[in-house]
Simulated assay, not measured.
Amino acid sequence: MSLQERNNVHCHGDGRYTMMLVHGYGCDQTMWRFLYPFFAERYQVILLDLVGSGGSDLSAYDRDKYGTLHGYAADMLEIIDEFATGPVIFVGHSVSAMIGMLATIKAPEKFVAQVMVGPSPCFINDDDYVGGYNAEDIEGLLKMMDDNYLEWTKVMAPAIMGAPTQPALARELLVRFQANDREIARHFARVTFTADHRADVPKSTVPALILQCSDDLIAPREVGEYLHKHLAHSVLKVITNVGHCPHMSAPSASSEVITRYLDRLLGGG
């Protein structure tokens, strides 16, 4: 199969730099619909679905390859080689922020910047590290997912989206979660929520913007502060927003922060 078919790749716009927008767990590229048209006026924009998500080729999902985030990072580098027309700005939401970081470690020469939206190198608390959850909490969530996937989606979709004044967004996320292949969703959830990439953080030297929400149940403020402390050439920006998906619930604030950062870093693109 082609890379375009495997990852449902779509390209828009043109420019000196290429911006890759990569969705988080359980989502797809349509989650970027409020942002990508704006950035396509300045950059080539690549939209894609992680294998196992959205309109990707589900037959390409290999539990061994995607048993760690490194498998997805390898896919990102293949897509860059095939589709990118300039140095890459990688914009990753949640788990894809770590996927992008791993790709920058593997091939830093391909990237000029990484934008981490609601990132977390580890969701599990560990001594002084605050990830947001105890190990028992994560196992409980994963067990709920195994026992009753539909109930899990009803609990987690509104918690992840937040945005209490925009209930349609939580309903949209619920529909997306329920449309996923359940076996793939369960596997990817375990990979996502039990991953620990704290040791990899200092290895990434590509300039980074860490974009966090003021009230995020999934990635608390301490996580952003940890990343900022350990990630070279990083900038931490916090926007006032409830939830884990600011590109959906606060797109104007998100695009403004990203634009200001890239203008300072790249001189306006």
Rank of each mutant, 00 (worst) to 15 (best):
A107I: 08
A159L: 10
E136G: 14
A163R: 03
V115M: 05
H93L: 08
V155A: 05
G131L: 03
N134K: 13
L102R: 10
Q166C: 09
A179D: 06
L173T: 01
P108E: 04
A179S: 15
D147F: 10
G100M: 04
P158M: 05
V91E: 15
D127K: 08
E139A: 14
N125D: 10
A170D: 01
K143Y: 10
M116R: 07
C122Q: 08
M156Y: 03
D181N: 13
A159P: 06
A107D: 15
Y149D: 13
L150T: 05
V130I: 15
M116F: 11
A103E: 03
A73C: 04
A168M: 11
L174H: 00
P167D: 00
F123T: 01
P119E: 03
A157Q: 00
P164H: 04
T165V: 07
T165R: 07
G118F: 08
A163H: 05
K154P: 07
M76W: 11
L141M: 15
C122Y: 08
A97R: 01
F177S: 02
E151M: 09
G86R: 09
I99W: 08
D137W: 10
D127P: 12
N148T: 10
L150S: 11
P108M: 02
V155S: 07
G118I: 04
V115P: 06
N134S: 15
K106H: 09
V175N: 02
V117L: 01
K143C: 15
D137M: 11
G118K: 09
D81H: 05
P164R: 08
F177Q: 02
P119A: 05
M156W: 03
E78N: 11
M98Q: 06
D126V: 15
W152E: 11
L173E: 00
Y133K: 14
M145S: 13
T104P: 11
A97Y: 09
A170L: 05
E139Q: 12
I89S: 07
L150D: 13
Y129I: 00
I124W: 00
D127F: 13
F123H: 05
L141A: 15
A74W: 04
F90Q: 06
Y129E: 00
M161A: 07
A74T: 14
P108R: 03
M156G: 03
K110F: 10
V117N: 00
L142V: 14
D146V: 10
I105T: 12
M101T: 05
A113N: 07
L141W: 12
G162F: 01
S120N: 01
I160E: 00
A84N: 08
A103V: 04
D137Q: 11
K106A: 06
A170F: 02
A157D: 00
G140F: 02
F177C: 02
V117Q: 00
E78H: 06
M101C: 11
T165M: 07
G131P: 07
L77Q: 04
E172G: 13
